[in-house]
């Protein structure tokens, strides 16, 4: 009964199944061998990921409120968190617009060189972050062929975040956009809706969840970003220092409690943002 999505003939019909395991129809009960496998996998996953992350939370909690308040009242730490979160929000906003636009052009337009664009978009995923910093420095640092030098400024932080987060919204919106029901748009057009209205009331509500998912990933990635900033932003306390750098210097100063506290604060902020993005997304869908 599911309405068939009409993808234009002649265009590649990207049929993508997201890696979500919702309806498990073929699920079998665990056998002894697979149960053992699951046990080993869980043990490894716990040792590698779960226990270490729990250790961060536990270390932060051990110190109680005083650790958090000390971290937040430290002027440099507070400034770093503020810069990180605000810049990450700004970058995410840019990604929401530009990422959706890029996905749109990749899905709805056809022109030579699109393959190259597909590859360029994935480069930030694979490029080592330290190299990403160097890459940006070569165009926007001292000796820039454009004659701009933003090294060691807050713009550099923005640019570094933007570079490493570019793929997220594009890659989450693109498959959804490709599978949209084009006939719904035609139906809206014949009912008198202008192109802008069709986008706002038909297309946007359909891709809003994907945009939100991409935005969330992009925000989380930006908040934790470190490598691309090392060479680019100068890590000047109170000016261009981001939260990750604060955490690192706490570690280096043998103050893991403080490092853990800042890490947990960042995590909490990320959660709040994720919830807000979800609420916003639902509103867009509902308003339609």
């Amino acid at each position: 009964m599911t309405p068939t999505t009409t993808v234009q003939a002649g265009r590649s019909a990207r049929v993508r199944r997201p890696a979500r395991l919702g309806r498990s129809a073929s699920g079998r009960q665990l056998t002894r061998a697979s149960g053992l496998g699951l046990g080993i996998a869980m043990l490894w996953f716990s040792l590698l990921v779960l226990i270490p992350l729990a250790a961060v939370a536990a270390t932060a909690a051990e110190g109680g409120w005083s650790t958090f308040s000390r971290a937040l009242t430290n002027e440099a730490t507070a400034a770093a968190i503020r810069l990180t979160v605000l810049t990450a929000l700004g970058v995410t906003a840019v990604n929401v617009v530009m990422g959706t636009l890029i996905a749109w052009v990749l899905v709805r337009d056809r022109f030579p060189g699109q393959r190259a664009i597909e590859i360029i978009i994935d480069v930030p995923f694979a490029l080592p972050t330290i190299v990403a910093g160097l890459v940006l420095l070569s165009l926007y640092g001292p000796g820039s062929p454009l004659g701009v030098n933003i090294a060691n400024t807050r713009i550099a932080v923005f640019l570094a975040f933007l570079f490493v987060t570019t793929p997220f919204v594009v890659r989450s919106v693109q498959p959804v956009l490709a599978e949209l029901d084009r006939e719904a748009e035609e139906a809206a057009a014949s009912l008198g809706a202008s192109r802008f209205t069709i986008f706002r009331r038909i297309i946007l509500p359909s891709i809003a969840p994907a945009i939100a998912a991409g935005a969330t990933l992009s925000f989380a990635r930006a908040v934790g970003e470190y490598g691309s900033l090392v060479l680019l932003s100068g890590n000047l306390p109170l000016r261009t220092e981001v939260a990750s750098v604060r955490i690192l210097s706490s570690i280096e100063n043998d103050n893991p409690d403080n490092a853990a506290a800042v890490a947990v604060i960042l995590l909490a902020i990320s959660l709040v943002v994720i919830v807000l993005v979800d609420v916003l997304q639902r509103r867009v869908v509902r308003r339609g």
């Binding site: 990635r221 955490i247 890490a263």
Partner: peptide
């Protein structure tokens, strides 16, 4: 979605 620095810390 975890910061590499936090991974190291953990």
């Amino acid at each position: 979605s975890v910061s590499p620095i936090v991974v190291g810390l953990a």
